[in-house]
Nucleic acid binder design. Structure first.
Lengths: 227, 227
DNA sequence: ATAATAGTGTCTCTGAGACATTATGAC
DNA sequence: GTCATAATGTCTCAGAGACACTATTAT
């Protein structure tokens, strides 16, 4: 044991929480408390300290923090992103923030004075404390990348959705139009959606078949990598 | 400030270091010291504590640890993998280990009594301390996945290599034969290799063109994600 | 019927893999 | 010349995208 092992870095978890509002990608941010001595009352990523006495692991820390701030929901998608670290990113000292990337249906977010929505931070040129702009950047890259080969965007919906609605979310994330026919072929090949027999979305046109994710397990903590 | 913020978890870095020995994938492991009170003298991943007073960030911790144990080398590939955490994975208490995935040419490893090679741990059914078997598992999945769409396996070579040698490394990692023609087409399309004009590997057959990576930057800390 | 959107079918082009062929050195 | 391996060319097939067409409801 030497001196180095005694200066233990600060350990926090930050969550980049995405949701869709009226067809546009938004972030759920949290206003920092009045009482904190670093960046009080500034909007920032939802985050907090790891509580070694109650959390089973870092994922559990993230779940606890989300539960406290937005009200927990079973249908949240949560995935470890990357650790951000160094002596200067937090004014309190050498710190590690384990970032998580999360997706939640808007209906499951309890918006209040401390929790609010921001249309994609980069577009609004909003300047966030710590290295939160960088973290958001990486998180967005991640969901964009995964959207090219996985069903990930389905997690923006609570219970069920039509293929047209799902396609619109893919288009928003990827920033480009997708051909309807090939989109449906690809989704079908994935074999990950369940047809909700007899359930349709009704509008002023032909009713649309509703689908849901086949397995709730896919909601949880998928591997980082295309298998 | 409450009690939770005072119990700060142990913070370490572990490196899954891959190399190729006579055409087979190996891990570089390190024998734990006699003096440590957890798993003394057992083989384990190369790792150590984060030194807040000297490391600029976690990547820098990983570089320092590698430098001390295997002798640092410019040509190492190093990438953040995933954080492993919880109260039980380390007998000393609630801990976080930031795992890194690394690739090094065999010539750059200073083998000694504490540093040695193991042919793919899973194959040998070797039981490692902590959750190191799990970490190795994830690391292997990662390099396998990246090998399907990137030039990553080129980092197993020090200065230069032939396409045939490179292909053999891909085949070992992916566990399957690759067609020579399409392999070369793919590599060529990546446009990431430099032809070393006039440099050939000589054998008892037609000399083979030598190549190297175009940019040394690609050696370093690539994004997690297929861009 | 018409409007509006859901959902499917067809064609083309590209790219990966299977396989064959040619190239170049040592001997 | 032969042998061994490097390097390239050709063919086929499957999948993605462009686009056109059909289906089903409300009005």
């Amino acid at each position: 044991m030497n001196i180095n092992e005694i200066i233990t870095p600060i350990l926090t978890v930050d969550i980049v929480l995405f949701t869709i509002v009226r067809g546009e990608l938004h972030l759920v941010l949290s206003k920092r408390t009045k009482e904190t001595n670093v960046f009080p009352e500034r909007p920032a990523l939802i985050g907090g300290y790891v509580h070694a006495n109650e959390d089973r692991d870092l994922l559990d820390s993230a779940i606890r923090i989300l539960k406290n701030k937005i009200g927990f929901t079973k249908s949240i998608y949560l995935e470890q992103l990357e650790a951000f670290s160094g002596p200067y990113r937090d004014p309190r000292g050498w710190s590690v923030s384990q970032a998580y990337c999360a997706i939640v249906p808007l209906e499951d977010v309890k918006i209040n004075e401390n929790i609010f929505l921001v249309k994609e931070v980069e577009a609004t040129q909003m300047d966030l404390p710590f290295d939160h702009n960088l973290i958001i950047n990486k998180a967005f890259q991640r969901i964009k990348s995964k959207s090219t080969y996985s069903i990930l965007p389905a997690h923006f919906f609570k219970d069920n959705f039509t293929l047209t609605d799902l396609q619109k979310v893919y288009e928003v994330i990827l920033g480009q139009k997708i051909d309807k026919s090939s989109f449906r072929k690809r989704i079908n090949d994935m074999d990950i959606l369940k047809v909700l027999e007899g359930k349709f979305k009704i509008g002023v046109q032909r009713p649309a078949q509703l689908y849901s994710l086949k397995s709730d397990k896919s909601v949880w903590f998928k591997s980082n990598i295309k298998s």
